[in-house]
Design a protein around this nucleic acid. Structure first.
Lengths: 225, 225
DNA sequence: CCATTACTGTACGCTAGCGCACACAGGGCT
DNA sequence: AGCCCTGTGTGCGCTAGCGTACAGTAATGG
């Protein structure tokens, strides 16, 4: 989405890395050395509490960047970034991104619009956690995930999904069972395949659409302010 | 917190306005004409759903600004901003803030750090909605509110608090009753007085401290990156 | 090939919070 | 005074999700 000039300046510094499932890109309160631009991987931003319970507050895929705190000026965040789906990503030294950011050009505007989209995703996650049941939240989570993946399959155990959603594993089993019996997904020991995407969209709560529309609005056109 | 030069440039354009309880500063999807810097007032950012249910996703007081979407580049947000506690605020034409922002000076860095603090508050709200009970959330809400007010009193009915927290009014009645019987607050027809602040802090969940520490870290020193 | 581990399904009692209904009191109004 | 409206307290049945326990089955590894 960047003009050639910016892209040319950045490309030599982008390093392609492989992210493995469960890998931590950022720990609470620790400064990241690099920012990551997922390609076909997905990264979850998690809040972990003192007792170990966790909740996903946002998910980042090829549309975004992990490490906004580096250019936002805070350096650290109180959340963790965990690879939710293995794959490739570009990474870039934090200082280089910051330099680019402070050129105050298209890259800065893009990063800021992305950060605003992230704000919306977090806000909607808060609402969803409050008002919607596990079934709907699972649908939202599945849709947000496969939107960020090339195919319709994802590798993820119910245990991990439960950690992301901040619910019991058994709750996920039940919700996933319903979806499977309804023929919307097939679930097999850590491998999920989405069979009927429109069916999922029919069951999901409004939160998914709110987030998706906002991402489209903010990121899917090259308009310069 | 700004150097004199920046302050001198902004001051003539700041307009002092009175915000009344319940006033809307921003509607979902509408562009704001001004940004607001609360002085002794408090503004709640709310997500409102299709069925009318709502949830507060963040609270803004004298430490912050209402309308980050104006400089983040998105122009609008899918949330509402409602005055939760009447009082004074400065307002500033959106375009003037944007101009100041794009001077890429101390004001930009400050606004970005504030936005990051807002991110943290939203994230923690999402976690709190998931994992903590109404009692704890009420304590968090009370503390976040009186931190942003000059005294120890706030004007707020249980009905409105329920809307903020996204719970039933009766749930708030019950939780507030416990706090009152414990001698931590006194509640009288829409007038709350905090009597024992340390007592509240002892009951609140960790979410309050996480948010408070992050605000302090990001905003309470003049360090320039 | 067997043992172990990891993942999924199911059951059961418990609790927090919901939806609803209603009683009661303060405070302002005519 | 009487009245209404607003705000608060309470009770009751219901449900979603929790905690816990355990069974069954696929993958894995020696």
């Amino acid at each position: 989405m960047l003009p050639e000039e910016e892209l040319a300046r950045l490309l030599p510094n982008l390093e392609k890395v492989t992210l493995t499932l469960g890998q931590s890109l950022s720990e609470s309160g620790r400064q990241m050395s690099h920012v990551y631009f997922p390609l076909d991987s997905i990264v979850s931003l998690l809040c972990v509490m003192e007792n170990g319970a966790s909740t996903e507050i946002a998910v980042v895929g090829h549309e975004g960047v992990v490490g906004v705190s580096l250019f936002m000026g805070g350096k650290t965040t109180p959340s963790r970034a965990i690879v939710q789906s293995a794959g490739q990503a570009y990474r870039l030294k934090g200082q280089l991104l910051k330099n680019e950011f402070y050129r105050a050009g298209p890259m800065q505007r893009l990063l800021l619009r992305y950060t605003q989209a992230l704000l919306t995703q977090m806000a909607q996650t808060a609402v969803c956690n409050r008002h919607h049941n596990v079934d709907q939240q699972l649908c939202r989570w599945l849709l947000l995930s496969i939107d960020r993946l090339p195919g319709d399959k994802l590798v993820m155990t119910q245990e991990l999904i439960a950690n992301m959603l901040g619910v019991r594993r058994e709750g996920v089993t039940e919700a996933a069972g319903k979806l499977q019996r309804a023929g919307l997904i097939s679930y097999h020991r850590g491998h999920i395949t989405v069979i009927d995407r429109p069916g999922l969209e029919a069951r999901v709560c409004e939160c998914y659409a709110v987030v998706k529309l906002e991402y489209d609005r903010l990121l899917n056109h090259h308009e310069v302010m």
